[in-house]
Write a protein that binds this DNA or RNA. Sequence first.
DNA 1: CTTGACCCTATAGTAGCTTCAGGGTGTGAA
DNA 2: TTCACACCCTGAAGCTACTATAGGGTCAAG
Lengths: 145, 145
Amino acid sequence: MLIGELAKMAGCEVETIRYYEKEKLLTAPDRSPAGYRHYRSEHLGELNFILHCRSLGISLAEIRQLADFRADPTLACEEINQLIDRHIKSVHQQVESLRLLEQQLQVLRQRCPQASDAAHCGILQTLVQAAEGEGCACHDSERSS
Amino acid sequence: MLIGELAKMAGCEVETIRYYEKEKLLTAPDRSPAGYRHYRSEHLGELNFILHCRSLGISLAEIRQLADFRADPTLACEEINQLIDRHIKSVHQQVESLRLLEQQLQVLRQRCPQASDAAHCGILQTLVQAAEGEGCACHDSERSS
DNA sequence: CTTGACCCTATAGTAGCTTCAGGGTGTGAA
DNA sequence: TTCACACCCTGAAGCTACTATAGGGTCAAG
């Protein structure tokens, strides 16, 4: 299987595969005399493992750790639990701060319900006022919470 | 006002200010004979504007646009509205996908309630199974939704 | 005249790819 | 056979928004 076919099967870009190989996340395949990479089904498994972890927002460094656990199953899985717990925590924090951000943007957006010119744009005025330290509508919810 | 004082007043790093100047987001201040930057209150306003926008997750490219609107207030503010609307939309999408991700991680975590060794680690097994295309517990909610 | 806090520039590093330049390979058709 | 075209290769640079590092200059106090 050539790199293009593997990419198609896994649903990623060819460059991504070469990148993972360079980063030693994917074992290097055999090469044809012309230097073409030839993959086998194990490679598809490895690649899917990486892509699946990435879709869960796990970093390449963490995936490298998981791959080590996978390679040596006598290791304690307590670390895997911790890794996932840390990850859940950070995702949860991201969700919370983005929800706050969304609220702030909604408030900001309501400042300018109709289009006119920038001189009268409520959004721009709000941003400029905030810069002048007059307290901003969009971040008020931070103080009150 | 020297760069260190400005940084303290605005609550950011000195390097960040120099970076914004290099990126032409901040107008270059006058220099002392020794080459030290000397700032005035306008600069604090400009910097606060940038930092406030950044705290709302607005990119530097978008801040550059907003600064143009600020500089030429005869421009239509419709574009500002659109910029904020686009931003709200993308933040909302991020929130949704992170919430889904959190759920998936919780499901994954429940696969391994107790620590043993990696050979019996439910999390690792789940990830490996997913890689083998057997359908994964953590992404099941995607299909059912 | 030395110490220490501050300032300067230019360059490289971060994460996770993506894009680009410049070239080789393999297959089918004219 | 020669051409086009789709695919493959490498190495380096680009992206975002900073942060860090190296190697140096300035200035006021003691």
